[in-house]
Amino acid sequence: MTQPNSPSARPILISVGTRPEIIKMAPVYAELRRRGMPVAWVHSGQHREMAESLYDFFDIRPQYELQLDRRNASLAHLNALLLERLSEVYEQARPAAVLVHGDTTSTLASAQAAFYLDLPVGHVEAGLRTFIPREPFPEEKNREITARLARWHFAPTPGAAANLAREGIAASGVHMVGNTAVDAALAGASRLVTLLASGALQLPEPLRRLQPHLAQGRLITVTAHRRENWGPGIRDIARAVARLLQADPRLAVAWPVHGNPAVADIVHAELGELAQRLEGRLCLCPPLDYPALLWCLQHSALALTDSGGIQEEGAALSRPVLVLRDTTERPELIEAGAGLIVGTDMQRIVGVVTRLLNEGDELARMRAAVNPFGDGKTSQRIADVLGKAL
């Protein structure tokens, strides 16, 4: 575990570990630094292989980094390790407050460790709910429990704030601020254009092979990783992609495949041979870094995903999103007309995608929908609240 020099003032400590958390908390870190507020960052050790490029892109240098000696893949084991190691970090850093994000295991452990040490917790992206205990699992209960430990609840939408009110969270602690994913996507897309133009950043080689197919305007970005989709769900998504590609020679697909074998083995078994035959129209690549994923979304006609983050990023970049789940804790996307829930049924996915691409008018209306997740100023509002409270 690395550690910084002793700070001159008690910092606000941002505690995250997964790729989406890093992306969504980077704008908060930048805004706190811009205001001269003491801030530190602890990386809790997950998604290590993806974190480095994100930290470079957002110019973040974590002051603390956990080395987790994981002996098995169980959530209980991970939570226990995180709770013990984060407690050690907090005792050394003596933060004025701890900021956590979302609903991962690192979110819950970070909030628990802070609560045990009587440190106030700010929960960014608070109030998301499906009201189905195991969908998604374990995220639904992680965020419910974190709400019981937090002092400041930074809700991304009025609906999320209303969920917290229904659960008895005091209104004085709930702040409707918007979603930091919008801040990150807008700033990241602008930075991406500059870096590509200057030659400071190159697209991964698999994406460069897609570029000749972009003129048709029919690129689809696909991601899928949710536990509830493992097995038949991932298989049917892959089969839907195969059917779409075989039916439309103008179509191209970028699918950054999650590294978990429960996902990757099925995707490559279903699509690996097809990818070789289609001469670059199907890109099955390892998980992309954030700039490359933004590039894919910017150039896509639509996205197919079970990811919450891509629902938000798609809306921020005016790209329609088809949600590969039976429900979403981001119903605002659907209500705003910027997305549709299609689940994992192969026939439904193929039918909806074909209709949208061929008819055009509905796709145009979805692109023109007002982003329900914010205006890119969420981090400023969070900093305002913390500045007054600390």
Rank of each mutant, 00 (worst) to 15 (best):
T130N: 05
F131C: 12
I132S: 11
R134K: 14
R134T: 12
R134P: 00
P136M: 04
E139Y: 09
E140G: 06
K141A: 15
N142F: 06
I145D: 01
A147I: 01
R148C: 15
R148W: 10
R148I: 01
L149W: 03
L149F: 11
L149S: 03
W152L: 09
W152Y: 12
P158H: 11
P158D: 13
G159R: 10
A160I: 01
A161S: 14
L164K: 02
L164Y: 03
R166F: 02
R166Q: 12
I169N: 05
V177H: 01
G178H: 00
N179E: 04
N179Y: 02
V182N: 06
V182D: 07
D183R: 01
D183N: 07
A185G: 06
L186E: 09
G188R: 02
G188F: 02
R191A: 10
T194G: 01
L196W: 07
A197R: 13
A200S: 10
Q202K: 15
L203P: 01
P204A: 10
P206T: 03
P206V: 02
R208D: 05
Q211T: 12
Q211W: 05
H213I: 03
H213W: 14
L214E: 05
Q216A: 15
R218V: 04
I220E: 03
H225A: 14
H225W: 14
